[in-house]
Write a protein that binds this DNA or RNA. Structure first.
Lengths: 368, 368
DNA sequence: TTGTACGCGTTATCAC
DNA sequence: GTGATAACGCGTACAA
């Protein structure tokens, strides 16, 4: 049924190989190999090289990289494993990876796990079978069996976007801690004091760093969040964000001044929930996100968020991979790419927001 | 520098191969091959099969698919070529492709062309070198040298989302003509008569079909668009859409009742342009899009658009590819996947829109 | 500078 | 049923 081989041979155009070029050039095929591979050992006389090259071009010779791979034990292909490419954070990473690795002749094998760990393990095993030269893992958990499996298989690994707790493998991540710190400081600077958060499961470095960034910044000014100002989502979707925000609004008689959300989709859901509760954003309540995904600049209201430099993360991850190939056994590195605040209308300090249930403030004014 | 081979061998864990399993099992490695491959020729005694299998498991044998590929001339890998994965229409197609092809053991090689035709040709050549079993091309133009190149190379090709003029290769596309026809009929049914459009370059089947859908539907009720109601964008971005809409609004003293846009991003830009001109959408002017990309349901105003079933397009494309592998030389097929109207607030008929410059209507009421 | 010969790990086609 | 053996196309140490 699925038998590509048939079709290929049925293509009737027998691929031209080194031997064909060699015959047509009157030299041995090893000579052809040397000519066509820049950086092979012995030098070749210019006239032979020229003749071979022109014959190769004429015959339309295309190297068979499968045969080369079998010989060299390197496929010049690398895997990229993501939960779901439909999440807009991944495509820019892919293009960053391509930016550094395509010029080096690498191809990228992309696989979606669909958030299924068993699928993920299976993908790694298949990629190992295919002898990928390395794997970019965007799904890395703080404690990750998949990372362990890659080590076991001896496959060079670079985590992107997230990192393991022990940081024993290389990674390029966004500085989520710094990003959330900046955002929280900005929020405090505006005058907000009654703050709520919607968090994601703490098994990922992104989710955790963002939470720690908030918590530490608040505690520096003596603030801590009561339980009824903290909500959680299982997965970062708008729907989950909406429900979490509804829980927040129902959890206490007074509503918070601002909801800091773990990412943009959750924030979008939170905005919807506020609307549904008859609240206006940002007149009655403010909302912030994280990621700056496309279109959040033109939703209603435009979302205040934190932008990651995803393309750079991909580029740097590519560089790190190349380094791993080169070095004998480099110590694993973790690169943290800075993010930047993107201020938009969803966040505005409104001490006298209409309908606002006053809540006795115990804090003086705060200056950052 | 970039020398994956080093690393691999430095991984010191020599891969276990057929011969290793054979030694440990006391049989010949060809026997091991037969055992491990369901559907090989000769039958194997159950006890040998069992022993071999358990030894293989014990040793952690992973087949080397590069070696297998060299032998079978099939890599069970396929390419997916897109302009830019960041365009949200592509990821669902990828996951559809994976849905049909992963279970069959295929891996997907993804490449972004960055809208550069030379890069695209290069990508095809590289994929050919890698002996991909087939290519999914999402960039297909009505007259496409890349499609020709694939034919020349004898690589099975399935276009996704777009199709060539002559339809000489297989494709799975959205029924853009039907989708735009439905939308236009709906718009006419609401009472709209003074219609403007923003079109994309007609070198792609999607852009052309959408335009033809509009044009034919209008002409069926005796309408045709004057030049000042037609604008073009070079590329379908929000920024370009904004500029095109500005040109439309400046092109005539009266403004149109509705702007039908070639896709959602362009529509988003058009909405911004209308805002910028002091117009309210949809009170003063309506706007429609095409694609139903994420978040357009919650922008202001929510966008009326047409949804394509992208995941299905990918799935069917996978099926078509498998068919091509199986059949000797199937006649190329073009599958058209239906789309559906998604009605939202950006489109509302307002005969007496405030500020509206009346324009003498010469048409009676229209019933669809 | 160029040719020889071997091996990369499989699959497939022979024998036995 | 199972073992031996020849490809698959290329890279490279070694010989010439």
């Amino acid at each position: 049924m699925a038998d590509p081989e048939n079709k290929r041979s049925e293509g009737k155009v027998a691929r031209v190989k080194l031997a064909d070029v060699a015959n047509a050039s009157g030299v041995h095929y090893s000579t052809v190999s040397r000519v066509l591979r820049p950086g092979s050992k012995g030098r070749i006389s210019d006239d032979v090289a020229e003749r071979v090259r022109s014959v190769a071009r004429e015959l339309g010779y295309q190297p068979n990289s499968v045969a080369a791979s079998l010989r060299t034990q390197s496929t010049r292909s690398i895997g990229l494993i993501v939960h779901d490419m439909s999440d807009p954070v991944y495509p820019p990473i892919l293009s960053g990876i391509e930016a550094t690795l395509s010029p080096e002749g690498f191809a990228v094998l992309v696989s979606n796990t669909g958030y299924d760990i068993d699928v993920e393990i299976d993908i790694v095993n298949r990629m190992a079978s295919r002898l990928v030269d390395g794997i970019f893992l965007a799904t890395t958990r703080l404690h990750d069996p998949v990372v362990a499996r890659c080590k076991e298989l001896g496959i060079p690994l670079v985590s992107v976007l997230r990192q393991t707790e022990d940081a024993t493998s290389s990674a390029v991540v966004n500085d989520c801690y710094g990003g959330m710190t900046d955002l929280t400081n900005h929020i405090l600077g505006l005058g907000f004091r009654d703050i709520a958060v919607i968090l994601a499961p703490q098994g990922l470095s992104t989710a955790r760093e963002r939470w720690l960034g908030i918590r530490d910044t608040l505690s520096q000014v003596g603030l801590s969040l009561p339980e009824h100002r903290v909500a959680h989502v299982d997965r970062m979707s708008a729907e989950n964000g909406k429900q979490a925000a509804q829980r927040l609004l129902a959890a206490a008689p007074s509503r918070p001044e601002v909801i800091i959300c773990v990412n943009d989709l959750v924030a979008v859901g939170a905005i919807q929930a506020c609307r549904g509760a008859g609240l206006s954003v940002p007149s009655d309540i403010s909302v912030s996100g994280y990621n700056d995904i496309p279109l959040v600049d033109i939703i209603d209201p435009p979302l205040t968020t934190v932008r990651m430099n995803l393309h750079d993360i991909g580029k740097e991850a590519g560089e790190l991979m190349l380094e791993q190939f080169g070095a004998e056994s480099d110590a694993p590195k973790t690169l943290r790419i800075a993010s930047q605040l993107v201020l938009r209308a969803s966040l505005r300090y409104n001490p006298a927001g209409k309908n606002r249930n006053a809540r006795p403030g115990t804090l003086g004014p705060y200056t950052p």
